[in-house]
Simulated assay, not measured.
Amino acid sequence: MAEGTRVAHVTRTTKETDIDITIDLDGTGVTDIQTGVPFFDHMLDAFGRHGLFDLKVRAKGDIEVDAHHTVEDCGIVLGQAIAQALGDKRGIVRFGNSFVPMDESLLLAAIDISGRGQLHYAVDLPIQIIGTFDTSLAKEFFIALASNAGLTLHVRSLAGENAHHIIEAAFKAAGRALCQATRIDPRIANVLPSTKGAL
């Protein structure tokens, strides 16, 4: 698939949320995020900008209950959009990794576009709430993203004291790792990067 054509638009409506996401894997990091959860908007903005994805997110959820359904369902829909935009996956690099420092924090994200959606998450957070955002929801987002995009995703904190820095570095690292993994390598433009012939 030629670069510049890997765009997907996915919507999902339930009794809890109404999500509409568009992603261009070959963008320049232009983002337009509105979820009703300000800290999460900031994280998705970081993910898109540092992954160089053009990303538009519109989400309405039952945030009067809490942000859980909105954050998780955005992960589901974003994962589905990534999978759709990847198409047949021919020519992709497949693997990507990124170390991102943010002041005292250092995060690693490593991705294999394996088709086997799974998250391995080792992130220690010193507090549970940032503003009104439950920090455990970062993991819920990455679970949903990995499962629905078909990613093997490792997110690991190597250092950190400030929860905001840790989570933000995690989103930036995941975006940068996914950017690497989704690139088209012209040497294998029509080849599926798998010894078994399937991803």
Score class of each variant (00 low, 15 high):
7 V>H: 12
8 A>S: 05
11 T>P: 00
13 T>N: 11
14 T>F: 12
15 K>P: 06
15 K>V: 11
17 T>V: 06
17 T>H: 07
17 T>C: 01
18 D>S: 07
19 I>H: 00
21 I>G: 00
22 T>G: 09
22 T>Y: 00
22 T>E: 10
24 D>Q: 09
25 L>W: 07
25 L>A: 13
25 L>V: 04
26 D>F: 01
26 D>I: 07
28 T>Q: 09
31 T>V: 15
35 T>L: 11
37 V>E: 03
37 V>A: 06
39 F>V: 10
40 F>L: 12
46 A>C: 13
46 A>Q: 11
46 A>D: 03
48 G>K: 09
48 G>H: 10
50 H>I: 11
52 L>D: 12
52 L>Q: 12
53 F>N: 08
53 F>T: 03
54 D>I: 08
57 V>N: 04
57 V>T: 09
57 V>K: 06
58 R>T: 15
59 A>K: 02
59 A>C: 14
60 K>T: 09
61 G>M: 09
63 I>G: 02
66 D>F: 12
66 D>P: 14
67 A>H: 13
67 A>T: 14
67 A>V: 08
68 H>L: 04
70 T>E: 00
72 E>Y: 14
72 E>S: 05
73 D>M: 00
76 I>C: 04
76 I>R: 03
79 G>L: 12
82 I>R: 14
83 A>E: 06
87 G>W: 09
88 D>R: 03
88 D>L: 03
89 K>F: 01
90 R>W: 11
90 R>F: 10
93 V>C: 01
96 G>P: 11
97 N>S: 15
99 F>D: 05
103 D>V: 07
103 D>Q: 02
104 E>A: 10
105 S>T: 13
106 L>D: 03
107 L>W: 00
107 L>I: 08
108 L>N: 13
110 A>L: 03
110 A>T: 02
117 G>K: 00
118 Q>I: 15
119 L>C: 07
119 L>K: 01
123 V>N: 08
124 D>R: 12
125 L>C: 06
125 L>V: 10
126 P>Y: 11
126 P>N: 07
126 P>H: 07
127 I>T: 11
127 I>R: 06
128 Q>H: 01
128 Q>A: 10
129 I>F: 10
